[in-house]
Simulated scan of single mutants.
Amino acid sequence: MCRAKRIINLHRSGMAACQSGDLDGALGKLKQALEEVRQIGLECYQVKIMNNLGIVLELKGDCRAAREHYRAAHGMARGKLGPNSRLCQVVGTNLARVS
């Protein structure tokens, strides 16, 4: 399996775990996906994963860590996609919620 497909599968699996209430499992899979996506440099996908990590951390009650992930994702989204992109706006909304 190619690395990009593996990252996508980890991301999807992490979000499925989150939706089923397995926040620790979700966190582990998303962290692994983030580590791998950083190695190959898919920055737009990195934004999505960091945003979703923020969501899981927020659900776990760790708003400080969630805020860090949202801030990093928001800065990258603004730089790569522009402030008016849908993804940048979504991350910005999430960041505002924990700020």
Rank of each mutant, 00 (worst) to 15 (best):
L23R: 04
D24F: 11
D24V: 11
G25V: 01
A26L: 05
L27E: 13
L27I: 06
G28S: 11
G28R: 06
K29I: 07
K31N: 15
K31G: 14
K31D: 12
Q32W: 07
Q32V: 13
L34Q: 02
E35D: 13
E35R: 11
E36F: 03
E36K: 00
V37L: 02
V37A: 00
R38S: 03
R38K: 14
Q39F: 06
G41V: 07
L42E: 14
Y45I: 04
Q46R: 03
V47T: 11
K48P: 15
K48E: 06
K48M: 15
K48W: 14
I49W: 02
I49H: 00
I49R: 05
N51G: 15
N52I: 09
L53M: 08
L53A: 01
G54A: 06
I55G: 04
L57S: 05
L57Q: 12
E58I: 08
L59G: 10
K60D: 03
K60L: 11
G61T: 07
G61I: 07
D62H: 00
C63G: 10
C63Q: 10
C63F: 06
A66M: 01
A66T: 00
E68L: 09
H69E: 04
Y70N: 03
R71D: 11
R71A: 10
A72R: 05
A72N: 01
A73R: 01
G75V: 05
G75R: 00
G75W: 00
M76N: 08
G79C: 12
K80R: 12
L81I: 08
P83E: 11
N84P: 13
L87F: 04
C88G: 05
V91W: 06
